[in-house]
């Protein structure tokens, strides 16, 4: 494979996401400008200027008309993807750490940080009435014990699952604003959560060196994928029983060790047998976010080195049969 390197950011990538058809790729980084790319040839459609802080999270709606970004400048912005203009902006009390559209994109959920003596809140907003003056959240749930670091919506806009800094997973009922289930998912910070294509399972990536597969409805722990480094992101292949894990050494200690032991590869595990079967090298720093193309024939990684790499699989990947 010959990857495409997308060099639109000057700082570490925080999150990347494809839209539903997979023709667009969105990337956010600690520099203040998220980018929009055509995934086929790596052409940049544009950059979104408006934030004044590191952009931590982004999400795109089902129709690929709106993009939502949350940043460290205490704001959540909704953009028109076709023009790159801000449609809606919400000012928060602290950094927006996660933001996700519900399936219909009528609702969106975001979580705020615990910095400056603020408690972490999960907020749900109605995107239809959100304009540049903002809107009051229709639901705001305080999370006093451990802040939310990953968030996902359930299939029919009813439930939210949150991953926390202490490794717990919580499932919330949106209409009643009630905590339904809580499980001890991981021993460390949950860095990322990504749904399977059918929305029945999700995979979590944690600093405790593992990624785990959970059932969405019951939060039942199904599988564990173990590595020797913190896992920053994990994604499930939409077409095959594969999971790809990205991570690596903590960015803070990379400079004190040789690059050989860095382990910045993306690692492919079999979904069911929990066994690693392939690796792809590329980044010079830890992978912070990765995403599968919705057609399953390519995937993208965003690293601490500021590059987004688009890798399309060779024939050998599809011909590979897992021995069991």
């Amino acid at each position: 494979m010959r990857p495409l390197m997308l060099h639109g950011h000057e700082r570490p990538i925080t999150q990347i996401k494809y839209n539903r058809e997979g023709d667009l790729l969105f990337s956010s980084a600690k520099d203040h400008v998220p980018n929009v790319w055509y995934s086929l040839n790596g052409e940049r459609l544009g950059s979104l200027h408006g934030h004044q802080g590191a952009v931590w999270c982004l999400d795109v709606n089902w129709e690929s008309t709106h993009l939502m970004t949350g940043a460290a400048d205490n704001s959540l912005k909704i953009w028109d993807i076709s023009t790159g203009q801000v449609i809606g902006s919400i000012t928060t009390v602290s950094t927006v750490r996660t933001c996700v559209f519900s399936f219909s994109a009528d609702l969106a959920a975001f979580s705020t940080d615990t910095q400056r003596k603020q408690t972490c809140h999960i907020n749900v907003i109605d995107c239809r009435i959100t304009d540049s003056f903002g809107s009051e959240p229709i639901l705001s749930l305080p999370v006093p014990d451990s802040k939310v670091t990953a968030l996902q919506w359930g299939p029919i806009d009813e439930k939210i699952v949150t991953g926390h800094e202490n490794g717990r997973l919580c499932q919330w009922e949106v209409r009643m604003g009630k905590l339904l289930t809580e499980v001890e998912g991981h021993q460390g910070n949950i860095n990322d959560m990504q749904m399977s294509r059918d929305g029945l399972m999700f995979v979590t990536a944690s600093s405790d060196h593992t990624a785990k597969l959970f059932d969405f409805e019951s939060l039942l722990h199904l599988k564990t994928y173990t590595t020797e480094r913190p896992v920053n992101s994990a994604a499930i292949s939409p077409i095959l029983d594969h999971v790809v894990l990205g991570g690596g050494q903590d960015a803070a200690i990379v400079t004190t060790t040789s690059s050989r032991v860095g382990k910045f590869d993306s690692r492919f595990f079999h979904l069911i047998f929990e066994e690693e079967f392939a690796r792809v090298k590329g980044h010079f720093g830890p992978i912070n976010s990765l995403a599968f193309h919705p057609d399953g024939k390519s995937y993208a990684t965003g690293g601490e080195d500021g590059y987004v790499r688009l890798q399309s699989f060779d024939q050998s990947y599809f011909e590979f049969n897992f021995d069991y």
């Binding site: 010959r2 990857p3 060099h7 639109g8 052409e43 940049r44 392939a278 690796r279 792809v280 590329g282």
Partner: peptide
């Protein structure tokens, strides 16, 4: 694609274990 932002990286291979 603009060569300033989109760079073709060198060929890499998936290493099967």
């Amino acid at each position: 694609p603009n060569p300033a932002t989109t760079i073709a990286a060198e060929e890499t291979f998936m290493q099967f274990i």
